[in-house]
Design a protein around this nucleic acid. Structure first.
Length: 428
RNA sequence: GUGGGUGUAGCUCAGUUGGUUAGAGCGUCUGGUUGUGGCCCAGAAGGUCGACGGUUCAAAUCCGUUCACUCACCCCA
């Protein structure tokens, strides 16, 4: 039996890899534009980091983590998300001492042990940002506007920004008890999931899709009417900034996220071309996490984009119009017509590449026609032809593959004037 | 973890009520007069029919088991 990639993991082959490169390089451009610096954290961390930050009772921690014991019996987990590691690094290196505000971005693989489906894998990729050391509503709005601008810069339309506020710690706690009181009487008519959620994460009952539960949820006291003044003001400021930036959004009072650390603003960006896993990105504010993890009491906000899902959308776009194309074309392809000349050609190839000419050489001894076919397949702009005939006449032939013409390039002792040749190739 | 769908050539897929040597298109390779690509034409290579077991004179086809892929639930990016 041949060895295959693990379930939920996959190889990214060309030409698909060009789409990934494009998505990532465009992200780096946008992050630079908005003043973010890259922060790379390890893929493995102490298990505690995630169980404490994301929440012991969340789905991610309770059933989806890649956790194992290392050779000394320590519990190690492959990161299921990047916010906790970034916060850990922020605290570990006391970055809050350098400046009041830190703006970071990250790009890399994350791991969750789930059943794979459209747009969901066990090793998946995220790019995202975190702004640490701020409670200012502007930074909530900037996170959203950055994500939206990034998608637009890739030519993606049809995105929907969904936004909500879960309020600060005080509001969350208060609303939680209001909800418990409300649902307590109806538990026996609600689904098993809702019954466990009632104990572990009451907020998420609002998100249930079972029809019978929905009926009951409809009459639940809405989240946004139970925010305290500070939370309400913060949320309104965020919305006002989005309005100023002309970023469209939908307020989703039932939007709840499955990570415990969120406070105040939470948001999600969805796209209609995706399957049932339609969230292209999401994020929110976490004002208490840094303090809970042993840092100063200071706020932060961030978002993450699922690159796998983004690539799905981009692929569907390129199927219609080819905005993003593969780019492995050659400037020059050197034929191999006579073994005695091969080392000369290899030497020439080497110096052409040192002059930034994209070039390659045929190493197979096959027919002229077959070598020309290879040159054509490699999408070479020019083909360099030299067999014994040309060698005897002290020339190379340079064939233009677009119009089919050939010209002679003079050689002395089978050396060309490399600068002239480079210039000639660049002209086209 | 639960449920549905699908496994035949490198890729996309045909394959009759079980019946000779399992096919097509695309791709690959080689030719179409001495050393010239694309287009066209010809030919070739390439398969343990996902794996294992069963029924049968005979299985890609029927049955069982298993694995993988895929979609959905849960949840998330």
């Amino acid at each position: 039996m041949t060895i295959t990639a693990l379930r939920g993991t996959y190889d990214i082959l060309p030409p698909q890899s060009y789409i990934w490169e494009k998505a990532e390089s465009q992200a780096r451009k946008m992050f630079a534009l908005y003043g973010y610096s890259e922060l790379r954290t390890p893929i493995i961390e102490q298990t505690q980091l995630f169980s404490r930050s994301i929440g012991e009772n969340t789905d991610i921690v309770s059933k989806e983590m890649y956790t194992f014991a290392d050779r000394k019996g320590r519990s190690i987990t492959m990161r299921p998300e990047a916010t906790a590691p970034v916060v850990r690094a922020y605290i570990e290196h006391k970055l809050y001492k350098d400046q009041s505000l830190c703006k970071f971005y990250y790009i890399g693989p994350m791991f969750r042990y789930e059943r794979p489906q459209a747009g969901r894998n066990r090793q998946f990729y995220q790019l995202g940002t975190e702004i640490l050391g701020t409670e200012h509503p502007y930074h909530d709005a900037e996170s959203i506007s950055l994500a939206v601008s990034y998608f637009k810069s890739l030519g993606i339309d049809n995105i929907v920004v969904k936004i909500n506020s879960v309020g600060d710690a005080e509001s969350k706690q208060k609303y939680n008890s209001i909800l418990k009181n409300f649902f307590a009487g109806s538990l026996d008519t609600m689904c098993p999931d809702c019954n466990t959620r009632f104990e572990k994460n009451t907020l998420r009952m609002l998100d249930c899709k079972v029809p019978a539960c929905k009926e009951i949820i409809k009459n639940a006291p809405p989240l946004n009417e139970n925010l305290n003044d500070a939370s309400k003001t913060h949320f309104e400021s965020v919305l006002a900034l989005l309005d100023k930036m002309k970023i469209a959004y939908e307020i989703e009072p039932r939007l709840v996220r499955g990570l415990d650390y969120y406070t105040n603003t939470i948001f999600e960006i969805t796209h209609s071309h995706l399957g049932s896993q339609d969230a292209l990105g999401g994020g929110g504010r976490y004002n208490n996490l840094i303090a809970e993890m042993g840092g100063p009491q200071t706020g932060a906000v961030g978002f993450a984009v699922g690159i796998d899902r983004l690539v799905i959308v981009l692929e569907k776009m390129t199927a219609n119009n080819s905005t993003i194309t593969a780019g492995s074309d050659l400037d020059l392809y050197i034929l191999n017509l006579d073994n005695a000349l091969f080392t000369d050609h290899a030497e020439l190839l080497h110096s052409l590449r040192q002059h930034d000419i994209r070039a390659d050489i045929c190493t197979e001894q096959k027919s002229f026609k077959a070598q020309m076919r290879s040159a054509n397949k490699a999408n070479a702009r020019f083909v360099l032809i030299q067999g014994q005939n040309e060698r005897d006449n002290n020339i190379f032939k340079l064939k233009d593959m677009i119009n089919g013409t050939e010209e002679d390039i003079k050689t002395i002792n089978n050396n060309v004037d490399i600068d002239k040749l480079v210039e000639r190739i660049r002209q086209s």
